Amino acid sequence: MPSTNHFDYVIIGNGLAGLQLALQLSSDSFFDNKQVLLIDKSDKNSNDKTWCFWEKHTGKWDHIVYRTWDKAMFHTSKTALKLSLSPYKYKMIRSIDFYKDAKSILSKKANFHFVLGDVIDINENDLVTIQTKDNFYTANHVFDSRINNTFFNKKDNYIRINQHFKGWTIETDSDVFDPDRFTMMDYRIKDGNQTAFTYILPFSTKKALVEFTYFTPQIVDDSTYDVYLKKYILDILKIEDYTITQLETGNIPMTNFPFQTHSTKHITKIGTAGGWVKGSTGYSFKHTEKKVLKIIENLKLNKLPSKGLYNKRYAFYDKVFLRVLQDENDKGEWIFEKFYTKNSVETMFEFLDEESSFYNDLKIMNALFSFSFIKAFFKTLLF
């Protein structure tokens, strides 16, 4: 237990955002004299999720990357597209490896402290008071990864698409998978006219994560995922005998809800609660890395930590895309087919990383040009 109840920074939530922020603080000598407290109700000792991202060449997380791919497949109902990702690699990190690595590094820092607890209340004055079930703490600044309750009320006009999924890691007795090529999206098995697809990460010729994913406003019963996973494995992969060794489920918000407006002078919302998940894709790992670096820069310049974290241009693009999925959810397969077949990998990834030129943005828009997007564009512009 820490010997004091007051800290320079308190980080609530030891997930992706909280631990990336703590690691960056710990690696910068500017913060060596700052006392940092991390609070989480979980000890983070289980492999509860998987993060994937694309990256050129080597990266700062390579020492914990579980698997990489430089080739991919994309299937629609009628076509199959082989993608070379060069100069990128698609990288996968297991959450348990990330948690262990982060805790190992931070535990060696005398100014970093961990508390197992559930935050039940925060009050902001000149200092921020954090109340847990067992104790209270004060801080000069709090980084809070808890989603504001107003997001769940749904009494507004913001778009909310659920990226919800269930994945099975399966093992077979025979060689089935190509371990050098993952499947980004496969639309050959669908649930009616909804946007739903299968995602495959092969770890070897006999082992892979097979995940059935929806991009829909509503969610489904747990048994529904099982139906389509079984159907895909039997009808598409032609596998009759296999063992399920691990399960993974999740629900990632794809939304234009203004999470960032809930940050204040002394409280900065981070992670999903700060709008760090890209609205149109659900990817968050590299976006988190960039936003953490911006926060560190702001802190060192004595600026508001949340200053400059958000790009209005890409937020508008995401909103148009989400509006199409909300109004015409059956268009998902068509959208992604145009996106992947009419653009280079580099153009797509730069756009999704929010690093593209306006010229390349126009190329992306041209590929998706349709009446559905025209309607969504003007609805987004006017409302």
Rank of each mutant, 00 (worst) to 15 (best):
M1R: 15
S3P: 12
N5T: 08
F7A: 03
F7H: 01
V10F: 04
I12Y: 02
G18R: 00
Q20C: 06
L21D: 02
S26M: 09
F31I: 13
L37D: 05
L38E: 09
L38S: 09
K41P: 14
N45E: 13
K56G: 02
H57S: 15
K60Y: 13
I64C: 05
W69T: 03
K78Q: 14
T79A: 02
S86A: 10
Y88E: 01
Y90S: 10
S95F: 10
I96S: 11
Y99Q: 05
A102F: 06
S104Q: 12
S104N: 14
A110R: 15
N111T: 05
D118N: 15
D118Q: 12
N123Y: 08
E124C: 08
D126R: 11
D126G: 06
T132N: 12
A139R: 06
A139D: 09
H141I: 08
V142H: 07
D156L: 06
R160Q: 02
N162Q: 06
N162G: 03
G167W: 03
S174Q: 11
S174G: 07
D180K: 14
P202G: 05
F203H: 14
L209V: 06
E211C: 05
F212S: 00
Y214G: 05
Y214D: 11
D222C: 12
T224W: 09
D226R: 01
L229P: 00
K231E: 04
D235N: 04
L237A: 09
T243V: 12
T249H: 07
G250R: 03
T255L: 00
T264E: 06
G274F: 03
S280K: 00
K290N: 15
L293T: 12
I296T: 08
N302L: 15
N302C: 15
K303E: 15
Y310D: 12
F316A: 02
Y317I: 06
Y317T: 05
V320S: 00
R323F: 04
N329M: 04
K331H: 04
F336P: 11
K338H: 10
F339Y: 00
F339K: 01
T341G: 06
S344L: 05
A367R: 02
A367Y: 03
S372N: 06
F378H: 07
T380Y: 08
L381Y: 00
L382D: 10
F383A: 10
